[in-house]
C-alpha cells in the first residue's frame, strides 16, 4: 500500500508543480478581495462611512463645537472617538461575519477545497482579503478625518493620532480574528453575522459596564476594554487606570486600560481567536 513517502507525481499531466502556500494565499486573497469590492455590502458600508464622515464634517462646520476646535489633539480625539471603532466593528462584521460560514452554507467552499490547497491557506487568504477590504473602508474615514483636521489646524497632526491609527489597525485585526472564529463555528452565515454583531455592538459593552460597576472588577478579558486605548491615547493626559466616583452611597468605578494592557488584550484576542477559528475550519466536514 502506498504512503506519503511513495509520492510519484508532484505535478499534473504537463509536469508543472503546485505553488507554495504563500503564493496560493496571495491568489486567494486577490480573488476574494475582487469578490468583496464588487459586492453590494462593500458599497453599503462605504456609503455608511461617508455619511458618518459627512455628518461630522457638517456638524463641526456649522456648530464649531469647542471640544473639536480647541486644539489639534482635541479635534482628533472628539472626531475619532465618536466613530472610528464603530466603523471598524461594522467592517469586521460585514466582511468577516460570514467569511467562513458562507463557504459551508453557500457551498462556495466546494469550489475551492477540492483543489490542492491547504485549508489554512484558504482561511488566511480570506482573512487577508477581509482585512484589506475593511482597511479600504476605514481609509475613507481616515482621509476625511485628516482632511478636516488639515482644514482647521493645518498639517499639524499630533503623534498620538498616529498611535491611535496603529491601535485601530490592531483592533481591526482582532475583530476579524473574532468574527472569523464565530464564522468557523456556525454553518449558517446569518447566525454568525448576528452573533458577532450582538457581541460587538451590545454584549461586550454591557458586560464591561456590569463588571466595572457592579463587580468592581477590571474587565481585562474584554476586547472592547482593550480597544479603549484607541480613544484614550488621544487624551492629554492619558486617563488614569482606575477612576472612582462616589455618588451618595454608591461608588462608580471606571477602568481605563493602560496602553500596554490594551495592546496585549487586542493582540491576544487576535491570536487566540484566529488560531481557534483555523483549527475549527481545518476539522470541519463539508457534509
Amino acid at each position: 500500500m502506498g504512503g506519503p513517502g511513495e509520492r510519484t507525481r508532484g505535478a499534473d499531466a504537463t509536469g508543472r508543480s503546485i505553488p507554495g502556500s504563500a503564493s496560493q494565499l496571495k491568489t486567494i486573497a486577490k480573488y476574494e478581495l475582487m469578490n468583496y469590492i464588487r459586492t453590494r455590502r462593500f458599497y453599503v458600508l462605504l456609503t455608511i462611512t461617508l455619511i458618518m464622515s459627512g455628518l461630522l464634517t457638517a456638524v463641526v462646520a456649522l456648530y464649531q463645537p469647542a471640544g473639536f476646535l480647541s486644539s489639534p489633539l482635541g479635534f482628533y480625539s472628539s472626531w475619532w472617538g465618536m466613530a472610528a471603532t464603530y466603523i471598524l466593528i461594522l467592517s469586521g462584521i460585514f466582511f468577516g461575519g460570514d467569511a467562513i460560514s458562507g463557504e459551508f452554507q453557500n457551498k462556495t467552499g466546494y469550489f475551492l477545497v477540492v483543489n490542492p490547497v491547504k485549508r489554512s491557506t484558504i482561511y488566511a487568504g480570506k482573512w487577508v482579503a477581509a482585512f484589506i477590504a475593511s482597511l479600504a473602508i476605514f481609509s475613507a474615514f481616515v482621509a476625511v478625518t485628516v482632511a478636516n483636521g488639515a482644514y482647521y489646524f493645518g498639517l499639524d497632526v499630533p503623534y498620538q493620532f498616529g498611535l491611535s491609527l496603529a491601535f485601530s489597525v490592531l483592533y481591526l485585526m482582532s475583530i476579524l480574528g473574532v468574527t472569523f472564529f464565530f464564522s468557523a463555528i456556525f454553518k449558517s452565515a446569518s447566525i454568525s453575522i448576528l452573533v458577532t454583531a450582538i457581541l460587538f455592538l451590545f454584549a461586550f459593552s454591557l458586560t464591561q459596564t456590569l463588571v466595572s460597576n457592579l463587580a468592581q472588577m477590571e474587565p481585562w478579558f474584554l476586547i472592547t476594554y482593550g480597544a479603549e486605548v484607541i480613544g484614550n491615547v488621544l487624551k492629554d493626559p492619558y486617563p488614569t487606570h482606575i477612576v472612582t466616583v462616589q455618588l451618595g452611597r454608591v461608588t462608580f468605578t471606571t477602568y481605563n486600560a493602560p496602553i500596554l494592557n490594551g495592546v496585549a488584550i487586542m493582540a491576544a484576542y487576535f491570536v487566540i481567536c484566529a488560531a481557534l477559528g483555523l483549527v475549527i475550519f481545518e476539522r470541519r466536514d463539508f457534509s
Binding site: P4, R7, R9, G10, A11, D12, A13, S17, I18, S21, Y31, E32, N35, N106, K107, T108, G109, Y110, F111, V114, N115, P116, V117, K118
Partner: peptide
C-alpha cells in the same frame, strides 16, 4: 492533501462560485 490532489481535478456535488 496538497500533494495528494496535485494531479487530481474534482467536481463534488454542485459547488457555488464566488
Amino acid at each position: 492533501k496538497k500533494a495528494a490532489l496535485s494531479t487530481c481535478g474534482a467536481l463534488i456535488e454542485t459547488p457555488e462560485i464566488y
